Computed example of a mutant assay.
Amino acid sequence: MPLSAIDLEQARVLVNDRINEANPDLHKINKALHSHPELAYKEYFAHETLTTYLESLGFVVKRSTYGLETSFEASLGQGGRQVVFCAEYDALPEIGHACGHNLIATASLAAFIGAAHAMVTLSIPGRLRLLGTPAEEGGGGKAKLIDAGAFNPPEDIAAAIMAHPKALYLIQQDGDGLSGLAGIRLAASHKFRVEFHGKTAHAGNSPWKGTNALDAAVAAYHNVALLRQQIQPDERIHCIIEVGGTAQNIIPDYSRLSWNVRGPSMTTADALLKRVKACIEAGATATGCKLNYIPVYVEDMATLGQKILFKRPKGGSGSTDMGNVSHHVPSFHGYFAVPTEKDVGAHNPKFTAAAGRDEAHVSAIESAKGMAMLALRVLVDDTIAKEALLDFESLDE
């Protein structure tokens, strides 16, 4: 049965009070994560900071879980439905927390603490889990966690929940006063690397003896650049050359490229991937190089004075490994606003600065209160849990 109006308000007060009480510590943790950016699967400071704090609060914490050094989980409760909060905390190379994962970790941590307090105080049945998910930025950490059983058995998990920061100007339109999004359709994504192996030779004395791996990389890149003219507006192809050689007078015998192929659905992304691979393989054929693929795993906010859009009709071109989770268990991936300069979005050095400001922390904390209430609703309200499951089961591939 759903919580009564009185119990619901009791739960909200308990959640808000507990998160507000913990806010000084949460603010310190947020600042610490922001000032110690770490790359995929190397988030040792974040892992230590988050687990130590959870242990200090008396939660049962497991470190280095599911075969990943920097994954962790904290849990509460036994039996009944289960809700998992997902925490991200990795950063981007050179530009740090330009995607605001310090805020994601803080928001999920706060939501877990707030929901746990209300759950214990009101004797709400069910289970809560905070799952530390490393390597969202290109590492596909959640995909590895899925394979390792972190979300198994799937029928045991009623919802996986998280929220992501997004530039305020991208959420608000025409002064509509929005401060967040409850959901947006993201793109399916294939991430992989490609190696070309050739044969080295002196570029001045005997270039004909070599097989140029850089030429293969350039040919593949150029082929795909031509392909971009013939793809749909909601499809994307990204690439960088990571390795191209060591000296200009030596024919390179090795090159490596990093690719990301995106489409609005798995069907379209798979079809585009096939076309991209044909372009890459043509580069190998033209130069005589050997080719090798390296796969990479790929209503409560209103009470806080926040205006949240339920769903924006137009999908986004970004992607996240939380999408992998959403194909495994019912999932929620919301957005909360971070004030930025006009035209400054995620993966921009200026967004790094914005993600470290107090205004961003306030937004993350407000989002945490909403996520905590969402988790409690899923635990106690059969209708919400069933509708989430029905929505999941009708997921359009």
Rank of each mutant, 00 (worst) to 15 (best):
M1K: 13
S4T: 11
S4G: 10
D7Y: 07
Q10H: 12
N23D: 10
P24M: 14
P24I: 08
K28S: 12
I29G: 02
N30T: 11
K31E: 15
L33E: 01
S35F: 13
Y41T: 05
E43I: 04
L54T: 01
E55L: 14
S56P: 04
L57Q: 06
R63H: 11
S64L: 13
T65L: 08
Y66E: 05
Y66M: 10
T70V: 12
S71W: 00
F72P: 02
C86T: 07
E88W: 02
E88I: 07
P93A: 09
E94I: 14
H97G: 00
H97F: 02
C99D: 04
T106D: 03
T106I: 05
G114W: 00
H117E: 15
V120K: 15
I124F: 12
L128G: 03
L131Q: 04
G132Y: 01
P134Q: 09
E137C: 04
E137A: 04
G138V: 08
G139A: 09
K142L: 08
I146K: 04
A148T: 10
A148G: 05
F151Q: 00
N152K: 15
I157Y: 02
A160C: 09
A160L: 06
M162N: 04
H164T: 07
K166W: 12
A167E: 11
A167K: 06
Y169I: 15
Y169W: 12
G175E: 10
G175M: 10
A182F: 08
I184V: 15
S189P: 09
H190V: 07
A203I: 10
A203Y: 06
G204H: 11
N205Y: 13
W208I: 14
W208S: 11
K209N: 11
A213M: 06
A216I: 05
A217P: 00
V218S: 14
V224N: 02
V224C: 03
A225M: 12
L226F: 15
L227E: 02
Q230A: 14
Q232T: 14
I237T: 02
I240C: 07
G244F: 03
T246P: 11
I250M: 09
I250H: 05
I250C: 09
S255Y: 01
W259A: 01
V261H: 05
M266N: 09
A269L: 06
K274E: 09
C279I: 12
C279W: 05
A282E: 13
G283T: 08
A286M: 14
I294G: 07
V296K: 12
V296A: 10
D300M: 09
M301C: 10
L304D: 03
G305S: 10
I308H: 05
L309W: 11
K311R: 15
R312P: 06
K314T: 14
G315A: 11
G315V: 12
G318L: 08
S319A: 13
S319T: 13
T320R: 04
V325E: 00
P330N: 00
H333N: 11
G334W: 00
Y335G: 05
Y335N: 07
A337Y: 07
A337N: 11
E341Y: 13
E341S: 14
H347F: 08
F351Q: 03
A354W: 01
A354I: 06
G356L: 05
E359T: 12
A360F: 01
I365S: 00
E366Q: 15
A372R: 01
M373R: 00
L376Q: 00
D382G: 07
L389K: 02
L390Y: 07
D391G: 01
F392W: 06
